[in-house]
Amino acid sequence: MHNFTPYSALLGGLFIGLSALLLFVLIGRIAGITGIVAGMRLSLEPEARWRMYFVGGLLGGCWLAVQLGMPLPSAPQGSTLKVVMAGFLVGAGTVISNGCTSGHGVCGISRLSKRSIIATLVFMLSAMLTVWLVGS
């Protein structure tokens, strides 16, 4: 297997799972990045504020991991047109289907939501097919 990193993957997943657990038992929310980001507004109401804090933490967590010695995030590769098209499709698709890898893939499946299980199967297949056609 190619560049397989089981330990960091399991540990990283543990942190992500713990994040979802805490967000739910503490404030009753689903840790779906699409839902949190797409619901952001410029306002100081509690409903808008917790989203900003979460996103701030998301950036801070990445920063912290790099300070602790994890590799820097890498930039997406390919032409600007390809990157922009991909970004648009990711944004539009996740809002239309109400979730992404976190909301459907992690949170939805772990609470056995039929919609999320199907969404995850569909976007995984669609992404694998795209990589097969376009190449990685």
Binding site: I33, C62, G78, V90, G93, N98, T120, T130
Partner: peptide
């Protein structure tokens, strides 16, 4: 819309390997 949105998301994700979480965190 669940199926259509998931297909579109998958295509974008497969094109460059970024989904919303890692993109925003980075």
């Amino acid at each position: 819309s669940l199926i259509l949105g998931s297909i579109l998301f998958g295509v974008g994700w497969g094109m460059v390997g970024l989904c919303p979480g890692p993109a925003v965190a980075s």
